[in-house]
């Protein structure tokens, strides 16, 4: 994703209509980066305010407050961030919020300003990353940007383990937010996203194939047989990690994974057998 983000950053200013390109903001979160394409055409006053807050560094250390996997990921308002706000940042945060600008619909990947239950000072600086079409929010909250790059990060945020009240179990926050301009794009190094599940597909398939091949060769030594079975299990687990998230879109892949799981479990019922029925091993003391 790092390469994709850099590519996006490098390509953006070179586009023919560079002057008409929307401003972009990078949110570096502890789960990876998000590049937001702002929509001044849909919400000019909100975009102006957001850019001012980002440039002032007000979004640095803002935590994720709530993860509702079927609706949105919501960040706390900047007044609830981990670092103390400077007077300048506070002044920007408590400035009167712009009126609702509802031209952009709340759909997957849009960014909306919300006032959550914990936004008691009503600054209107809390961001929500929308995870599903939310027509009920249209016209009631200002949607002002879309996630242009970093869908993996968006999904990682969606899948963050949470307590029953939807608060993340492990602190997730915006490490840094900055405006991505042409000069910065060529020199900034974007942070590396967390390791992708797809990376386990290759090793998983390799272990699975090796284990099955070893079983087909019918090794005589019990340890070799057990090792082959274990390789099959570990390989299958690698494939499960890599493919389970995608299986939801393919009934065939899901069925294949389920059939594979049953086969692996069946294989494991004979993982290890004693060398001889109830024989005392060398040096071992028989108790019964």
């Amino acid at each position: 994703m790092r390469a994709a983000l850099l590519l996006a950053a490098l390509l953006a200013p070179r586009a023919p209509a560079a002057a008409a390109e929307p401003p972009r903001v990078v949110l570096e979160t502890t789960l990876g980066d998000l590049v937001l394409a702002l929509r001044p055409d849909a919400a000019p006053r909100q975009v102006e305010r957001f850019l001012a807050l980002v440039r002032a560094g007000a979004y640095d250390s803002v935590p994720v407050a709530r993860v509702d996997r079927t609706r949105y990921v919501r960040f706390a308002p900047v007044t609830r961030r981990r670092l103390t706000l400077s007077p300048e940042q506070r002044a920007l945060a408590v400035a009167p919020r712009p009126p609702i600008e509802g031209a952009l619909k709340n759909d997957y990947g849009t960014v909306t300003v919300v006032r959550g239950r914990d936004d008691v000072d009503a600054t209107g600086t809390g961001l929500a990353l929308i995870l599903a079409p939310m027509p009920a929010m249209d016209g009631r909250f200002t949607s002002f940007a879309v996630v242009e790059r970093g869908q993996e990060t968006l999904e990682a945020l969606r899948e963050a383990p949470c307590d029953p009240d939807h608060a993340p179990l492990r602190a997730i926050e915006i490490s840094r937010a900055y405006v991505l301009d042409a000069a910065a794009a060529s020199s900034l190094a974007l942070s590396r996203p967390p390791p992708g599940a797809a990376a386990l597909l290759g090793p998983g398939v390799a272990a699975l194939a090796l284990g099955l091949l070893a079983l087909l060769l019918r090794p005589r030594r019990p340890a070799a047989r057990a090792g082959a079975r274990l390789a099959v299990l570990l390989g299958f687990f690698g494939v499960l990690v890599a493919a389970a998230g995608r299986a939801r879109g393919s009934a065939w892949l899901g069925t294949l994974l389920l059939a594979g799981a049953v086969a692996v479990f069946w294989l494991m019922t004979s993982f290890e057998l004693p060398p001889a029925p109830d024989a005392a091993p060398k040096g071992g003391r028989r108790r019964v």
Binding site: E159, P161, P195
Partner: peptide
Amino acid sequence: RWPQTIAPSFIKLYLLWSPFHYSG
């Protein structure tokens, strides 16, 4: 270490294996 990547599949493996084990 990787609660978003490994943990969900580890839990899934257990939840698939458990009823198979019951059946045995």
